[in-house]
Write a protein that binds this DNA or RNA. Structure first.
Lengths: 234, 234
DNA sequence: ATTTGATTTTGATCTGCATCAGGAAAACGT
DNA sequence: ACGTTTTCCTGATGCAGATCAAAATCAAAT
């Protein structure tokens, strides 16, 4: 019996331009597609990978959103990333062939499963794929290092504004509205990620709304003055 | 005329195990060696790469140390990394084929210059080299994301302790003492990197010395109680 | 509908670190 | 060796954001 989602292929995936297939020709995309499996849908709070688990697959987000986090010596969760459609999950695991962080769905999410060993074979034969792997990993290196500097020396408002701007930009890249979007993570998640308390997140969101920069209804954010928000992020 | 340093090769470099040659066989190392140039020595404050410059080479640190930083919209320096022997510089540039940060020598330093285009060719033919590239980039992704979580939610003392422990561990990997080492960066650099003021760095170093955890003489650090320091870093 | 638990908001207080200020000690250049 | 500059240390003050506390809102389950 054919899988219901068997008609989904890299060739017709709207996230291809952000994902591994970027700049591959038709034949290359088809070859990549043969090694990729569609993962069963994840529901909110489902855990995709556990820290310490051996690396077998990289995952590409097809829809939904997820968070990655570590658990420190005190058992405290430390969120290190939020994943949106088109993102790849697992680059941090290549170094030791074992996952270094947990990844959990923030909402119902669809994923593609990419066997690492096959990917390695394919990278040998496909210079374009190799280059895209480098590009994606390099991009992650830059953004996470950049973020370090950005967060470290900035005020709570600057951090949160930066977070919202970055999120808006990422939605835009994905063909979604950068003016109006839904926060799939909780205020606590945002605070954890930015190194701020829940209360501070809540207060600053209220303040930004009062100033007319954004409009927040629960999880829904409307950016009223994108330029102003970008200024606040510096 | 033969270059004075022409006798330096990957095959006899003590940093090979941390660097690109890791796990390559003799032949592989020799092939890699053919594409690598030795860069002229850098002196303190010399700039190796400028942000915005097209990416031509990756650099491997053979000796000395350097810092990488961006300059934000307000003209403020943001240090994003310190490089020690064996480290590769430029992974963040692969994504856009242009450097995203400045890199400056903290002391007299020797570097190897690796042409990216040749490296790409070689990666096609050498699975081991390809794997090591992935390993190194993956490691950078993990450490920088990890650092984000670590720094964000921790006190000044925890941050500085973490910085010292990480530095000590890196010296150890390189066959140097993890108990006694020299800080080649200024207190201001450390503060900038950790998101703390110079004064705070100075005060905490004094406090740690008072508690007998470390002994600081100017740039020289002696770790008296490594276990205690690690505890303070959490 | 009602309960239950999770999430968000708002207020009050307290503290860790930035900032300001001044001086001491190294490092550097001549 | 000397002055100059950079780096480092220490004290005093103030404020941004953590923490504590409690109410309000939302979401899931029965």
């Amino acid at each position: 019996m054919a899988n219901m989602t068997s008609h989904i292929h890299c060739q017709n995936c709207s996230m291809a331009a952000l994902c591994l297939p970027y700049q591959l020709d038709q034949e290359g995309m088809a070859r990549l597609d043969t090694i990729i499996q569609r993962h069963k849908p994840l529901h909110k709070r489902d855990v995709l990978v556990n820290a310490g688990a051996p690396l077998k697959f990289l995952y590409a987000v097809r829809s939904g959103s997820l968070k990655s986090y570590t658990i420190d010596d005190n058992g405290v969760e430390q969120i290190i990333d939020f994943h949106l459609p088109g993102d790849l999950i697992g680059f941090d695991a290549l170094a030791r062939s074992e996952h270094r962080s947990y990844t959990q769905a923030l909402e119902t999410s669809m994923l593609c499963e990419i066997p690492v060993s096959s990917l390695d074979d394919l990278a040998e034969q496909m210079p374009g794929l190799r280059r895209q792997m480098w590009r994606l990993m390099s991009g992650e290196i830059f953004t996470s290092k950049q973020l370090l500097g950005t967060l470290n020396n900035r005020s709570a408002q600057q951090r949160l504004a930066h977070f919202l701007v970055t999120l808006a930009d990422r939605f835009k890249e994905r063909g979604l509205s950068s003016r109006s979007f839904r926060l799939t993570m909780t205020r606590a998640d945002i605070g954890n990620y930015l190194g701020l308390s829940v209360e501070t997140i809540s207060r600053i969101l209220s303040a930004l709304q009062l100033e007319g920069v954004i409009d927040v209804q629960n999880k829904l954010v409307n950016v009223i003055e994108p330029t102003r928000l970008r200024e606040l992020a510096q």
